[in-house]
Design a protein around this nucleic acid. Sequence first.
DNA 1: ACCGGAACATGATTTTTATCATGTTTCTCA
DNA 2: TGAGAAACATGATAAAAATCATGTTCCGGT
Lengths: 238, 238
Amino acid sequence: MRVKPSDPILSCLTCAKGSHSIFSLLDNEQLEELNIHKSCTTFKKGQLIFAENALPLGLFCINNGKIKLSTAGPDGKEQILRLVKGGDILGYRSLLANDRYHCNAVALEDSSVCVIDKSFFMSLAMSNQTLCLALFKKISDDLKTAEEHIVSLSQKNVRERVAEALLFLKATYGFEADGQTINVQLSREELADLVGTSTESTIRLLSEFNTSKLIELAGKKIKITHLEKLTKTANLLY
Amino acid sequence: MRVKPSDPILSCLTCAKGSHSIFSLLDNEQLEELNIHKSCTTFKKGQLIFAENALPLGLFCINNGKIKLSTAGPDGKEQILRLVKGGDILGYRSLLANDRYHCNAVALEDSSVCVIDKSFFMSLAMSNQTLCLALFKKISDDLKTAEEHIVSLSQKNVRERVAEALLFLKATYGFEADGQTINVQLSREELADLVGTSTESTIRLLSEFNTSKLIELAGKKIKITHLEKLTKTANLLY
DNA sequence: ACCGGAACATGATTTTTATCATGTTTCTCA
DNA sequence: TGAGAAACATGATAAAAATCATGTTCCGGT
């Protein structure tokens, strides 16, 4: 988690503009100020960005890359709780709650990340009503998503949940240029850790979806070839 | 959800003092102000306080009683997502996210509830840093709890989850005067809807816990007679 | 390029849990 | 207070999913 000063300095002004970042709400002057209170760093695929139980020292702001938030269950099996992408903030829950991290953050691919000074961020959030509301919105949405996940885990079978997870990945990271391939590559085990099932069951269901032409598999790349059927298979509420 | 003006007016000053309420942070002047912007009402056991998809008109503040927040899964089965008690606020997520309710709130017993005007509450929250931070803390804690629930559903078997649910009820509502009986009465079906399992499995496991002297059953009352063993059975992380 | 480990895949088996069936108890309210 | 309904209980069965076993493919590092 050390900050390497050699990393290229990203400007908050260019980074926040046009992105869905929570900081796109700030004006140029505020972004300049923000720029002073951050440092930039990069993480290689597989690298730990922060660890469960650590105290947050700042807010992570993802310039680009993909990150998973996960935690180990009582028997050591991993559970993926959230997925993060460029423009997202990371580690904000612990910061706002004045709490320790309750998940590990691991880079799913090489990622470029800024760290905003904790007390600067907190005073900015408290002094800027728009930002404050955006943070409430963000955490509220995450809570809603988590509670929808609870319902899904309680009431859906593994087939439905695997289909749902693929749609979730699509919703989070979108498609590649071909408009069909999900723009993130997880191992079967990671997908299982997201779905909350065994790796074998995940593999079997992916094969099944492949056979029944809902998806096409090419290594870790998953192409959704029949979105409508896949949505039906997921038995979505909405 | 109608407010009956005939209900006795509860004073925010007496209500907030000494409680764990988020409003115990306010000074007397602010509480007086709050008092003006609220109305009081009561709900009978089983009554709907608000419904999924409705727009929030205010913040509910529980004077006393017990309330469940639940939602129906894709096949109509209910999932209990949160439990609320006297001193708690209710419906705050939707308010802060400017969103519709995503669960139903139903009184588990006769409850006395105040409703605080939406825009008054929002401007109070935005103008009072302490309150604002307390709200961040509250929603962060709820998110953490939800994510722990996700891990539990993914990785624990039904036996562990039933044991965990009993400990959760104890943590939420405490014991009756005897120091052993969980201070809330849920039907077996409601307990199943909290655990995320079938009613039959819940009944079977309660019977098993009863036989192995972890608990004692008397109607809907559940007495925890061997907290340590029950905790072990729950296979808790911490 | 090739060695070795990790990831992927699939079949067989076992375990867990839901569902179905049926009977009993408890509660509600006319 | 007694009839009917709802809740509780438990056994039998079926379905779902995990686990175990084994083989194959892929991939990174020397």
